[in-house]
Design a protein around this nucleic acid. Structure first.
Lengths: 221, 221
DNA sequence: TAGATCTTATGCGAATGTTGATCGTTGAAG
DNA sequence: CTTCAACGATCAACATTCGCATAAGATCTA
C-alpha cells in the first residue's frame, strides 16, 4: 500500500509518516499544496492524508482538482480548524474522511485502515477465460472487449460454467443450479443453450465430455 | 436510498428522520439496540445512523454483530461521548464515520451524503452520465445544463440507478431501496417510473436487461 | 378542493424459453 | 473396417413470460 502525506508542518509530517511506515505502508511526502497536487495527480496512491491549511494551494482546492480530474483514491482530511462548515465543505468536496487536529495517532491509523479496507471492497468481480470476460457485478460479458448480448438463461449458464472452469459439469448439476426443483429432467434445454453459447463465442469455448457433461477449458494461454 | 436511524431519544430520532426525509431518503426508525439490530440484519439499507448509548443492546455491539454477520452497509456513529478511544473502538468495529453530539444537522447530512457516495465508489456529489448530471447535494438533475424537473420518486429512482451505473439492478432491489418495509412486491410501479424517466431523458438512458433488471450505460466515452 | 403525483389494471407485441423431430458423431463390438 | 447404438447437436415451431404504453383510479399536498 502506497500513501501520500500532504502536510506543511514538517514535524507533524514526519510523525505521521513514521507511524504509517511502522504500520507497513510505503509513504511519499509533500510539504505544500502544489507539490501535493502534482504527486497525487501523477502517482497511483492507495490513500492520501491531506492537510487543509497549506502554502501555495489550499487543501480543499487540491482535493477539488483531483476529483475533477477523475482521481478517486480515498482521501483523509486533516485540519486544525474544526468549525462544522469546513467539515461540510471538505466532505462535499469529495473527502472520504475527516480528522480534526490535534488528533491521536491511533485514530488516524484506524481511519486509514478503514479507508483502505473499504476501497478494497469495491473491486469489480471479473472472471476471464481467454479473451472472454464475465463481469458478474455488471451482468455483462465481453469478448475481445466487445460487449456480447446474452439472454438471462444464457448468462446464468455461462456464469456457472465460468465459476467452475476446468471441472466437468454434468447436465444434472446444471439443471439443478439453473432451475428450481421441479423441472423436467429429460429435456434437452441445456444442450440448446450450450449450442447458443457456442454460436456466440465459438465452438471451442465449451468442451463436451461425452457421457459426463461439459467443461470450460482451463486458462491455456 | 433507504436509511435506518437507531436512536433512543425520540425527539432526536424524529428530527433526524425529518431532515433525511426532506433530503429525499426513505427512512426506517428504531428506538433500541435490539430492534435496530434486527432491522439492519433483515432489511437492505444504504446507510445507517447509529447511536452508541442505547437501551437493550449498546450501539457498538450492534455494529459488531452486523459486521460479524457480513453486513457491510455504511454506518455513521452518533454519540454524546467524544473521548477518542471510543472513536477508535467504533472505527475498528467497522464504523465508517463518526459524529459527536451535539451536532449540526447540516454536518450529519453531508456525512450521510458522503457515506452513500463512497459506498458507490464515487468521488463527487455530482454523478454524470453522458450529458445528464445528477447533483445529490442539491437534489437536482440537468441535461445539457438545462434543469429537468423530476417528481420525488422519479428522482429517487434515477439517483439509485446512477449510484450504481453499469450494474444491472433488479426490480426487487429497486423496490427494496426506494420503499419501506410494507410495499406490495409485485406491482409495476417501477416499470411505470422507468417509462417516465425515459420519456424525459430519451429511451437510451436506461437499458433493460430482460429477466434481470435495468442498467445505466457505463460511461462509454 | 384542485392539482399534482403515485399506484393499479389491462392488453399488446416482442423476446425468450421449451419441445420434439431429425441429423451427426463417437466409440466399441463384431 | 464396418456397423450399430447411444449420445449429443441442431433447427424450427410453439408456448410462455416479460416489459411497455396507456389510461383510469387513488392518494397526497398546497
Amino acid at each position: 500500500m502506497r500513501m501520500l502525506i500532504v502536510e506543511d508542518d514538517r514535524d507533524l509530517n514526519r510523525q505521521l509518516s513514521e507511524a504509517l511506515e511502522d504500520a507497513g505502508y510505503v509513504v511519499d511526502k509533500a510539504y505544500d499544496g502544489e507539490e501535493g497536487h502534482f504527486l497525487g495527480d501523477t502517482e497511483p496512491y492507495d490513500a492520501v492524508i491531506l492537510d487543509l491549511g497549506l502554502p501555495q494551494m489550499d487543501g480543499l482546492s487540491v482535493l477539488e482538482r483531483w476529483r475533477r480530474d477523475g482521481h478517486s483514491m480515498p482521501v483523509l482530511i486533516l485540519t486544525a480548524r474544526d468549525r462544522w462548515s469546513d467539515k461540510v465543505a471538505g466532505i462535499d468536496a469529495g473527502a472520504d474522511d475527516y480528522v480534526a487536529k490535534p488528533f491521536h495517532m491511533e485514530e488516524v491509523l484506524a481511519r486509514v485502515r478503514a479507508l483502505v479496507r473499504r476501497a478494497a471492497g469495491l473491486a469489480s468481480n471479473e472472471i476471464s477465460i481467454g479473451d472472454i470476460v464475465l463481469d458478474t457485478k455488471a451482468g455483462k460479458v465481453t469478448k475481445n472487449g466487445m460487449s456480447v448480448k446474452l439472454t438471462s438463461h444464457e448468462f446464468r449458464l455461462l456464469s456457472y460454467l465460468m465459476h467452475h472452469k476446468g471441472r466437468v459439469i454434468s447436465r444434472t448439476e446444471l439443471v439443478e443450479h439453473l432451475y428450481d426443483q421441479d423441472f423436467d429432467r429429460d429435456s434437452n434445454t441445456i444442450e440448446v443453450f450450450v449450442g447458443r453459447l457456442r454460436k456466440k463465442f465459438g465452438s471451442s469455448l465449451i468442451e463436451t465430455v461425452r457421457g459426463l457433461g461439459y467443461r470450460l477449458q482451463e486458462e491455456n494461454a
